[in-house]
Design a protein around this nucleic acid. Sequence first.
RNA 1: GGGCGCGUAGCUCAGCGGGAGAGCGCUCGCCUCACACGCGAGAGGUCGCUGGUUCGAAACCAGCCGCGCCCACCA
Length: 878
Amino acid sequence: MPEPLATRYDPAQAEPRVLEKWLAATALYHPEPEGEARENFSIAVPPPNVTGALHMGHALNGSVQDTLIRFHRMQGKRTKWILGTDHAGIATQTQVERRLAQEGTSRAELGRERFVERVWEWREQYGSTIIEQFKRLGATLDYAEERFTLDPAYARAVLKVFVELHERGWIYRDHYMVNWDPGTRSAISELEVEEREVEDVLYSVDYPLAAGQGAITVATVRPETMLGDSAIAVHPDDDRYSRLVGETAILPLVGRRLKIIADPYVRPEFGTGALKITPAHDPNDFEIGRSHGLEEILVIGEDGRMTHRAGDYEGMQALEARAAIVGALDEQGLIVAREAYRHSVPHSHRSGERIEPLISLQWFMRMDELAAPAAEAVRDGRVRIHPESQRRRYDRWLAQIRPWCISRQLWWGHQIPVWYRGKNEVHVGEEAPRGSGWERDPDVLDTWFSSALWPFATLGWPEDTPALRAFYPTSVLSTAGEILFLWVARMVMMGLHFAGEVPFDQVYIHSVVQAPDGRRMSKSLGTGIDPLDLIDGGDRPPVFGGDGSRPPGAFPAYGADAVRFGMLAMSSTQDVRFAEDKVAQGSALANKLWNASRYVLLGAAGTAGEAGGRNARPDPTPHTVEDRWILSRLERAKASTAQAIEAFEFHRAALGLYDFVYGELCDWYLEWVKGREDAAGMLLHVLGETLAVAHPVIPFVTEAIWEHLPGAEGLLAMSRWPAPAPDRIDVAAEAAGERAIGAVSAVRSWREEVGAKPGTRLPAVLEAGGYGEVRDAVARRAQLEFAAPGTAAAGNGRMEPLAAIAVPGGTIHILPTDAVDLAAAEHRLAEERTRVENEIVRAEGKLANEGFVTKAPAPVVQAERDKLARLREELESL
RNA sequence: GGGCGCGUAGCUCAGCGGGAGAGCGCUCGCCUCACACGCGAGAGGUCGCUGGUUCGAAACCAGCCGCGCCCACCA
């Protein structure tokens, strides 16, 4: 350890230095592509958006993945964490367009080619930010190989997949109802749509009947779409209207004749029970229209303005048209009712604008054939999804899958590999067609189309590369639940179909981290927390915590270990609130470990010749029962940590480490060992293994300590996880340790109440079984001076003890001394008696219960009997 | 409208059939030779409500009340 020794661990100082060492060791994170995928361990990182910045979700997921990667690396596996970024079509294009607007220009002005160049420049400038931030977290991604979803090799894979699916007839072009996002001026998939509650007006409008008097009244919240009406529908069983089915109504303002048809979709009880049918602008009407062969009249265009089919209203924004139409209808007295109507309406997840459903010529992909094997792969366990609840979501979605609209009216992305010449010639291929006059389809593919190939396209597919053989299928995919369908399910489909195997053996869906008050973390709400502010210190969000109890100002520089620990400790099988406490707990753990190590390395190991020589983790040679106790406890900590990580129970891994380091290693073992001459080897062993076990969770501090272990070579990150040593489990030693801890705690509690000064040693007699080897340990930690047994035996009389303290297995008698407040001691003793008496009553009651004795399992009954016997003895000695 | 889940100490959460736990906060005492971002000792809980199952329920079942999330094309 460097001199002078810092008594406080300072992550801000240590972490950058340790990181540099890791990054310099290419072999740490960049494996040679050797061996078989199933003997190696690999994770493909969910590719962040090129221009994105690290947020809380990344911090959690990065911690999870790096913990898995480090753990398996230390298990001796060849380990690869595939790194890369996503071009993120709409998101990136929108950002750059905003920038262009600031510069007073636009993408239209630049033209496609210049615009795409600008995006590439943008990416050069901002693309690596998030990768640097991942490094700061300590994430050992394969920085030597960075992929991008628009790399030439990746693009080839995308085009190949498109062409092949097209050949199969699964990709096709069609006029079909799409979710049109007027904000981004593009079709989007249903997964990019979110429902929002909206206050609308429900208008009831009279459509006059063509024959004779009267009208049929329909209800609508979007009067402007009436210009595209091509029928009116009623329920077939609706007696009110049965005589009108087959008749004709006249569309107001337009004069078009609308047939009145019967369709079971219509709900008679809603509104007037008559529904206007606008096949081009409503998904339901579209279905009805197709089944009745109705005309599809597009009155709202992709620019959000009324088309020439809207007659007088052509060129108006849809909402302007609505106002105009309502006005016109009012003039004719055709609006017979209007009522406030609250309902949920689809909005674009991207632009936030209200979706305009319309019929459009787009590319689609049918999913049925791919969905079935993807469902099967999960059903038969080739892909295991954690937690279980997410698996049910996956199943349900695949069971009702629909065609996927894969074309986007954007410029940034994989341009669709289809060329047209004249009216009738179409060429679909990875290469442009020969000859002149061909024009390429201007649309690009949905970003998720290319993301779906991520686990194998990053490894060189379609070539049969060594990397593909070594790391595909990947071992684990860890991601957010919101992209289970958008991304995960589609990777399974594409992986099975094109790479011939599932893309990953296990899927872990991590929690969503909410703001401390339970709201979404978001910039606009002021509830977002930047993980880097937690690591290096920085601004707390203006809105932090709902109860106002959190301090304002800035976060201290907790360090990456603390943030990792905190994220893991918070993680759960469901969404969680951000709790700064957990991060602080992580930093406390790092500091604790640092200081425990200082003690071991400066004190014990420095002086004793026994210390491990060239081996940083010497085999332990236990001398005492405490030694055997800590070895046993360490063994259990090792096993439960490994188990927790493998079971994706990260909170157990993190908090379990904390409990071991605090509650066993530091609070008890280090204290017991103080003053011993022969413990250096033990201490080094225990420290060495503890560092290794904790390393996947808190890699920085453990690596920083490792640097100072005598005999430590290379990086802890590249060393082996300590092999399981089940023979070190020692139940007897554990029982002895537990007794000792119980006794010391009982005495301390008693001392506190009778006002015995902490520094004073009290004369005492230990009358309890099973303390043979831990007698001295108890005396030391409880500040007692044990006299020979029998000194205060009951009835002995010569030295009447002034107090008796119940401890596991017996009693400790305190001999007369003036260091104790006698009255307090008397009081305490009385309290103690009452407590024991009450417990005896409870136990007796239970054992007197016929039902309990006959029906409860024998061991439980026996345990109760033993307990009663113990309590009676205890009362006796008090 | 369907599905999933949650309501345990002031706060954030663990426990998920044998007499309630952690971290933080709070109170008291300690500069004990690794750590005062520390150590020790405490206070604090009809485990949402009501019924049921059971010898025994915070845990299992049902209903109710409150709160989330996901899915869903009803004008």
